[in-house]
Lab assay of single mutants.
Amino acid sequence: VNVKKLKVSELKEELKKRRLSDKGLKAELMERLQAALDDEE
């Protein structure tokens, strides 16, 4: 998943799939999702 190419709605969906908070600004969502993806690898 390329975090930078996702829309806010898509970021929120990806975060929900991982049971993460989907609250906050786009930058925060991107950071949170990227951290989750880094952990998965």
Rank of each mutant, 00 (worst) to 15 (best):
V1L: 04
V1E: 02
V1D: 02
V1R: 07
V1Q: 05
V1T: 08
V1H: 00
N2V: 10
N2M: 12
N2Y: 03
N2R: 08
N2E: 11
N2I: 06
N2Q: 10
N2W: 10
N2C: 09
V3P: 11
V3M: 02
V3A: 07
V3Q: 03
V3F: 07
V3I: 07
K4S: 13
K4N: 10
K4D: 12
K4Q: 14
K4H: 10
K4P: 11
K4F: 09
K4Y: 07
K4L: 09
K5E: 13
K5M: 12
K5C: 11
K5A: 13
K5P: 04
K5G: 12
K5F: 09
K5S: 13
L6H: 00
L6M: 13
L6K: 02
L6Q: 03
L6T: 00
L6R: 00
L6D: 01
L6N: 00
K7H: 12
K7T: 14
K7V: 10
K7E: 15
K7F: 03
K7L: 13
K7D: 13
K7G: 14
K7I: 04
K7M: 11
K7S: 15
V8E: 15
V8W: 07
V8H: 08
V8S: 11
V8Y: 05
V8F: 09
V8P: 11
V8D: 12
V8N: 01
V8I: 00
S9M: 08
S9H: 06
S9C: 11
S9N: 01
S9Y: 09
S9F: 01
S9I: 12
S9Q: 10
E10S: 05
E10M: 04
E10G: 04
E10H: 04
E10P: 00
E10L: 04
E10D: 10
E10Q: 14
E10A: 07
E10V: 06
E10Y: 01
L11P: 01
L11G: 01
L11Q: 02
L11T: 00
K12V: 06
K12S: 06
K12L: 10
E13H: 08
E13Q: 13
E13T: 08
E13V: 09
E13I: 14
E13Y: 05
E13P: 00
E13R: 09
E13M: 10
E13W: 05
E14W: 02
E14G: 02
E14R: 01
E14P: 01
E14K: 00
E14A: 07
E14M: 09
E14H: 05
E14I: 01
E14L: 07
E14V: 01
L15T: 01
L15S: 00
L15N: 00
L15P: 02
L15F: 00
L15G: 02
L15W: 00
L15V: 01
L15Q: 03
K16Q: 13
K16D: 12
K16V: 14
K16R: 14
K16S: 10
K16E: 10
K16L: 11
K17S: 10
K17M: 13
K17N: 07
K17H: 07
K17F: 03
K17G: 06
K17T: 07
K17L: 10
K17R: 13
R18C: 02
R18L: 06
R18A: 03
R19C: 06
R19N: 15
R19T: 13
R19Q: 13
R19A: 13
R19H: 13
L20G: 02
L20R: 05
L20H: 04
L20K: 08
L20I: 15
L20V: 04
L20Y: 05
L20T: 02
L20N: 04
L20A: 03
S21L: 05
S21A: 06
S21N: 07
S21P: 11
S21Y: 02
S21W: 02
S21K: 05
S21Q: 05
S21D: 08
S21V: 05
S21E: 09
D22H: 08
D22T: 14
D22Q: 12
D22W: 07
D22C: 13
D22L: 11
D22K: 03
D22S: 12
D22V: 14
D22A: 13
D22Y: 06
D22M: 05
D22F: 09
D22R: 10
D22P: 12
D22N: 06
K23L: 14
K23R: 14
K23E: 15
K23A: 15
K23P: 03
K23S: 15
K23T: 15
K23N: 15
K23H: 14
K23G: 11
G24E: 01
G24I: 03
G24N: 00
G24M: 00
G24P: 02
G24V: 01
L25N: 15
L25C: 15
L25A: 15
L25K: 15
L25P: 15
L25H: 14
L25Y: 09
L25S: 15
L25Q: 15
L25I: 10
L25M: 14
K26A: 13
K26W: 07
K26V: 13
K26S: 13
K26Q: 15
K26G: 08
K26D: 13
K26P: 15
K26M: 14
K26E: 15
A27C: 09
A27N: 12
A27W: 06
A27I: 11
A27F: 02
A27Q: 12
A27L: 11
A27Y: 02
A27S: 12
E28D: 11
E28Y: 00
E28W: 00
E28F: 00
E28I: 03
E28H: 04
E28N: 09
E28M: 04
E28A: 10
E28L: 01
E28S: 07
L29D: 09
L29M: 07
L29Y: 00
L29W: 01
L29T: 11
L29V: 06
L29S: 10
L29I: 03
M30D: 03
M30S: 05
M30W: 01
M30N: 04
M30R: 06
M30I: 04
E31P: 12
E31T: 15
E31L: 06
E31K: 15
E31R: 06
L33H: 08
L33E: 09
L33N: 02
L33D: 04
L33P: 11
L33V: 06
L33W: 00
L33Y: 05
L33Q: 11
L33K: 09
L33T: 07
L33A: 05
Q34Y: 02
Q34F: 05
Q34A: 11
Q34I: 06
Q34H: 07
Q34R: 11
Q34T: 08
Q34D: 08
Q34M: 06
Q34G: 10
Q34W: 04
A35V: 09
A35G: 13
A35M: 09
A35H: 10
A35N: 07
A35T: 14
A35E: 13
A35K: 09
A35S: 12
A36T: 08
A36H: 03
A36N: 08
A36M: 03
A36K: 06
A36W: 04
A36E: 06
A36Q: 07
A36S: 04
A36C: 06
A36G: 05
L37M: 03
L37D: 01
L37C: 10
L37A: 07
L37Y: 02
L37F: 10
L37I: 09
L37E: 13
L37P: 09
L37W: 08
D38H: 06
D38V: 09
D38S: 12
D38A: 15
D38G: 09
D38E: 01
D38K: 13
D38L: 04
D38M: 11
D38T: 08
D38P: 05
D39T: 13
D39E: 14
D39A: 14
D39S: 12
D39R: 12
D39W: 06
D39I: 07
D39L: 07
D39F: 05
D39G: 12
D39V: 08
D39N: 08
D39Q: 13
E40I: 15
E40G: 10
E40Y: 02
E40W: 01
E40A: 09
E40T: 09
E40L: 01
E40H: 06
E40M: 03
E40D: 09
E41V: 11
E41D: 09
E41T: 15
E41K: 10
E41G: 15
E41C: 15
E41Y: 05
E41H: 09
E41I: 07
E41M: 13
